[in-house]
Structure formats: C-alpha cells, structure tokens
Design a protein around this nucleic acid. Structure first.
Lengths: 338, 338
DNA sequence: AATATTTGTTTAAACGATTAAACAAAATTA
DNA sequence: TAATTTTGTTTAATCGTTTAAACAAATATT
C-alpha cells in the first residue's frame, strides 16, 4: 500500500479555484476581515474534506522556527531522567512544542553527537543534563547563541541558564540532622566524579561535620567508581562499618548508590537506625520494603522540570537574561534516622 | 546575544566562488569522479571553517524523508515505557534516525492528538503502544499508509505490524507451574480493561485451570479499576484470601498490580510461598526486598524493542509485507512459588 | 580538422509553506 | 465625474536544500 500522496495547500487551492496564498491566509486566520466569508468557508471545508495537514517542515523552514526542543539526559531509561522527560513533555505540549530526546550515557562524546544531531534538526532550544567533561562543549554552545537550559547538573565555569538543586544545603541539612540525632561518625558514599553537583554534596557533608565540631575523618568519605557500582558500593559500606570506630550514619550520594548500599545493609545483622542511620538522595521505590523506610532528600522534581521548560521557552521567546536557580530540597524524615 | 546566523550552502558557495549545487554535490559525496580535487578540498575546508551544518528541514522537505520516528507510549515515566524508549533510541540511532515521543496516558483522545502532531511533523514512521479504544484510529492510520508498528499491545481486528508477547502462553505456563507445584485454587488479578493483551492473560489463566481439571471459580478472577488501583488491588487480594476456601496462588496481571498486591501481602501474617504462591508479569525492582523473591514472567524487552524498530525501519525502506510477532516469555522461577 | 566524448561546473526547478507587495474591482468621498 | 479608499485576491520571492538538465571547455577519436 503506497503512502497516500500528502495533501498540500496547492491541492486545496486548485480544488477551490483560488491561490495558495489565500488558502494559507484562511487556514492561519490571517487577514481576518478581508476574506469573503463564503470563500473562507469553502476553503476550510475543502481542507477538512481532503484531510489537510500543515507540513511543518515547510512552515518551519520558512518561519525559521521548529517548535521542537531537544532533551539530553543521562539515560532515558532511568527513573530520574524519564520522570523529568515526562514533566518536560507535558509542559512543552502546553505551548505546542514537541520534544526529541537522546541519552548521553554520561559520555561527553556521545553528548556532543547528540547536540550536533539536534542542531542539525534546527531545534529551537535544548534542555541538558550535561555529563562529566562537557564544560567546553557547553561553553561553545553558549557562544553559538542557541537557547538552552541546564538541569540537575551545571557548570559553574559557564555563565548560563540552569535549574538545579542546592546540593550543598541539602547535604548539609541531611548530615546535620543525623548529627543532631546523636550520630558521632557520619559517612558519605558518592560516585567518584568531577561533576559539580556531586562535589557540592560532599562539600555540604563536610561543612556539617565542621560546624558541628566533629573531626573530619578522611576514611568517612567514600568515592566509588561509577563503573560496576554494586561491588564498589558494597565494599565501601563494608569498610565504613569495619573501621575501628565504625560509621554510625551514612548519607548516600544518589538514588542508585542507596539502592545497592541498603540492599547490602539488609543482609547484615546491624539494625537501622539504632546502629546506623541512613539518608539517601531521592526517593527510591526499590527500597520500599526495607524494614526501616529510608529518610531521603526530596528534590522538587515537578517544579524543577516545569521551571526548566519555562525558562527555555522564555528564552526562545527572546528573553535574553540568564536565569540560574538552585532549588531547596526537602528532608523527608522517615524511619531510617533517629 | 543574538543567534549567530546559521551557515548555509550559499555562504560556502560564495566564499569559495562556486555554485551551491557544487557545494551540495561535494558535501554529499555525489558526482565523485567529476569534481576537481582542489575545488572539493576547498569546499570541505570552508565548510568546516564556517562550521557548516546541513539544515535537515530543508533537506527533508526536498527528499521527502525526515529520518524521524514517533514513539507513542502509555507514559514515558513508567519503567516499561522508558526502558523501551531507550532500546528504540539506540536501535534507531544506528540508522541515523531520531526519536520524538509522547505519552498517551492510556487515553484514546490524547493518542489521536499525538498521532496528528507526529504526522504534521512528517515522521517517517510510528511505533505505538495503543491505548484502549483506539482500534479505529489504528485502522485509519493503516489506511493512510504511513508505516507503523504496534508493540506491547495490538488490535487483532486490524491487520498490521506488531510485536507483542504471547500473553496467552505466558499466563498459561505461569499458572500451570503453580498448579503443578500443588496449588489448588489459583487466582488472577488484572486491570478491568478491554485491552486485548490483558484479556489474553486471563484466557491463558483460564485455560490452565481447565486443562488441569480445576473447576474455574468466578470469584478467582479479579478485575480492578485502573483509576486508584492501590485500594482496589488491596481489596481484591483481601477478598481472595477471605473466601471460604481462600486462593492459594495469585498471578498478578502486571508489574504495577504486583507492586501493590505484594506490598499489601507483606503486611499480612501469611507466608509466601507456603500459604500463597505469587507470580507477576515483569520484574519489579520495588519488590526486591520482599522476603520471597517474586517469580516472574520475563518479557524479552531488548529483543522486542529491537525487533519493533527494525520492522519499522524495514517498512520505511519499502518492505510492504505485514509482520506480526508474538514472542515467548520466560518464566523466571524464584522464591515465591514452590 | 571536424566530430565526439569526457570533465567540471552552473542553471533552474522543485519541495510546501509564508507573506510583503501588487493589483483589480467595488464602494466611498469629494 | 474624478479621485480616493476599501475589499478581496493574486503574484512572486523566500526559506535551504537536492538534482536533472544544460552548458562550456578540454580531451580524445576519427
């Protein structure tokens, strides 16, 4: 079955016996008062009858606007990314934008390829969670002048729009809370990465110790390799718990770290929160059945997604000022802390 | 900062002092032998120097092909959808296709809007998980002649490409396994929906009873409303367990049903699998910590996603025959069955 | 030397829309 | 009645590519 030849303005024009210009004016409701009622009516009828659909390629080419935004996440299959994608989709849809997406796999080169693909497709703007080592690419993008907004992560060295968590304060508050609850030796397990937002979390952790008068202990900070994290995280937790004076609180630096960490802890005889307090970043469904529900740092994902999208669409609509937002997290206190 | 005017073929042509046609030929490696080496070289250099990028809108308009496919899922934020999206993205990328996506929210009207949006954008084809009551829309799409492939769900009334699970056999085998393990009163909890794939699961369940010589009991089949499923599922499980002769095995008709069901069961004194055997469709991370790991029906998601994409791209490349695939599931036996 | 072929490049139409400008006819004003 | 304005529509250029066809110059063939 061949594709039914698509209907163009020309087809309508011919059928009605007018010029394509007139058809365009009518279907776009331009020149409102000028066009004869009966002709307009006829054109609209014919368009419907022929099942006409604007060719957005042609329109976009002419008006130099595609109503498309590109979304680059780490991995669309991850809950955080797909959750964000959904929020962005809905928000974009409200203003008639369509989203095309790609996963960078935390790989700067793949990231570059995606940016290129999207630019070639003439997207009106980009929403980006940049991977490690992509600062200069982000910088170059900035020079190009295409509107974009970073989210989740950002590059402090590049002056550009972003929406992210105030990771420093979030981590600070979480650790402070555990200390105030009586923990003497709080640890943190994060990925070994140069990504700014992760470093901020460690900085917040350290500040909480310092301001609470606890002597920082280097071995309380565990940075695990992002490749094959399961084994690395288990080892890290194990080490923390077998110190001469074992850690009595752990802040897991991300969702996925917490999953492996807590599952491992679940196999140990120690009791949460009595022997060990736990806080994780983001809620984690897969720990729902852990005997002590995990206290977690809640990012306002909805607000972040909506804000990110709005800032981008604002920018596309000519607003040139740079908007940088660090949102406050909420500490949701549950059973894993005391 | 204004957007740097994008560079076109014309700019290169002017700079080099040739026609745009020649530039196009060179950059597309057409007319290989005919073009003077030095000129070709110069053109390529200048293109790089000016940071030229093909305008895919213009090319697509001319060649009537966008290298874009539209993906319509129930909800991109759900693990199944986003997992599929990722597989499709990777497979499409290999052949230089880009994916645009939308979530139907299981709503036929929203589904229609998405199809429309994607057609307007001149996608080369669609990959669709159709919602309830979208049969006629799928049928109309079929008449239009645009290549598309259904996945996960399909409409038996419409003769079109699809890739789905053999849900009948999957359910049959699962229930049979529980019966063979000694279960006398197997139940099933599914959504109350006319979606064909769900009905197939019930049909497989019923066949297993019949062929095992078990008298089917109407109250063993629970169909819960998809709106506010948590309460409905808990009620269903509760009813199954308080029958005069309570159910001693449950097949949960989907991932999300199993989550609520098992979490509820976790609060009860009964023991899995001794008092109650459990099987679910799809693996469910959030039940990882349940004391008895859940036996589940494993869909070959990777193969399904890849196959779906390949069939579509095949179709776009002119293959007109209809391909219908029902893939076999694997029953992954773990601790929740005996 | 005349003709044919090859080589290297340009011309120009097309894809399907948008839109400023031009135009003709009707209605209004002077 | 002539000049002006309004109404309704068309013409034609444009967006940035692709590509068949035309063309001119160089080379090969007779």
């Amino acid at each position: 079955m061949a594709i039914n030849k698509r209907v163009s303005l020309k087809d309508i024009a011919q059928k009605v016996g007018v010029s394509t210009a007139l058809v365009s004016y009518v279907l776009n409701n331009k020149k409102e008062g000028r066009i004869k009622k009966e002709v307009a009516q006829k054109i609209r009828e014919t368009a419907k009858e022929l099942n006409y659909r604007t060719n957005l390629l042609a329109r976009s080419l002419k008006i130099n606007k595609t109503y498309t935004i590109g979304l680059i996440v780490a991995d669309i299959a991850s809950p955080f990314s797909s959750g964000m994608a959904r929020i962005i989709e809905d928000e974009a849809d409200k203003l008639n934008y369509t989203v095309i997406f790609g996963s960078s796999d935390e790989n700067a080169q793949k990231f570059g390829k995606l940016v290129d693909t999207f630019l070639t497709r003439q997207v009106d703007g980009l929403i980006i969670a940049p991977p490690e080592n992509a600062e200069n690419q982000v910088f170059r993008l900035r020079q190009q002048g295409l509107p974009f907004v970073l989210f989740d992560r950002y590059c402090p060295s590049v002056n550009t729009n972003y929406v992210a968590l105030d990771n420093y304060t979030a981590a600070y508050n979480a650790v402070k809370y555990m200390i105030d609850g009586g923990c003497k030796r709080p640890a943190i397990v994060t990925y070994d990465t140069t990504l700014f937002h992760m470093q901020e979390r460690v900085r917040g952790y350290s500040a909480a110790l310092k301001l609470s008068g606890i002597d920082a202990n280097k071995s309380w900070i565990k940075k695990v390799n992002i490749i094959n994290p399961k084994a690395a995280i288990e080892k890290a937790v194990q080490e923390l718990l077998s110190l001469d004076e074992p850690a009595d609180a752990i802040l897991f630096g991300s969702n996925s770290i917490a999953v492996h960490g807590v599952k491992y802890i679940n196999t140990l005889p120690l009791k949460v929160p009595k022997d060990l307090a736990i806080i994780s970043f983001d809620e984690t469904e897969s720990l729902d059945l852990f005997y002590a529900s995990i206290t977690y740092i809640k990012q306002p994902m909805h607000e972040m997604g909506q804000l990110t999208t709005r800032i981008l669409l604002d920018c596309i609509g000519k607003n040139n000022k740079v908007t940088q937002v660090n949102m406050q997290a909420e500490l949701v206190i549950r059973a894993s802390t005391r």
